[in-house]
Amino acid sequence: MNRTPPIPDTAGPSPAMVDVRGINKYFGENHVLRDVNLTVAPSEVVVVLGPSGSGKSTLCRCINRLETIQSGEIYIDGQPLPTEGRALARLRSDVGMVFQSFNLFAHRSVIDNVRMGPIKVRKMAKTEATELAESLLDKVGIADKGNQFPGELSGGQQQRAAIARALAMQPKVLLFDEPTSALDPEMVSEVLDVMNSLVADGMTMVVVTHEMGFARHAADSVAFMDEGQIVEMAPPGEFFDSARSDRARAFLSKVLSH
């Protein structure tokens, strides 16, 4: 897995849920993703770690094409990621995303946030979507907040509502882009609890985070990124106890020392 060369064009779709093949991404002159390969099997949880600026958030955002890539291929459940348009919107509806800054729709109540996707994208009947939204708000522990507006909720509650909104699409895979980084410390655990329950449910997840505890206990594998490359990919036990690369060891010594 460690820096495999780009797979030749002859390779077809794979049974992986997420299959990232040799992608390159530039922001202007800045080469932020360099020949990145990543495969996520169904029900697998991959945690992406790395110093800031290593490209981990960008990788996460490329998977549902919020960022475009300059070369390489991305497959979701065997389907190549389409370019902008209706096909991409359809595919995105199967790929949930949870943002660092929650991004709940500020002008809509919490329950409206959760049921908007099912109603507008899945064309679900409103009563059915409302039931789904209520059960999901209950699942993330904010059943009583449905009629409030995002601005009236705490950060932790907003992030849990955002997770419920992503779950409402019944996604094949959930992407988390630093979901706890904008939270006060005492709210981190309530969000991690919800994420742990999703892991237990067998959700396929790609999680960019700085939560080393979550990586150690919940991940099936840890991808360590630095300077736009996946430097190392290993099961969490192996990664935390005996990282192979110098860069990973240097990173771990910094984040685990305090």
Partner: peptide, 23 residues
């Protein structure tokens, strides 16, 4: 309107017109 609002709209599968109209 913050860029994140439009990104969240696209991320749940809304088309460009839907995200403009609804969000």
């Amino acid at each position: 309107v913050s860029l994140g609002q439009a990104e969240a709209a696209r991320a749940i599968g809304l088309t460009f017109l839907q995200s403009l109209r609804l969000v």
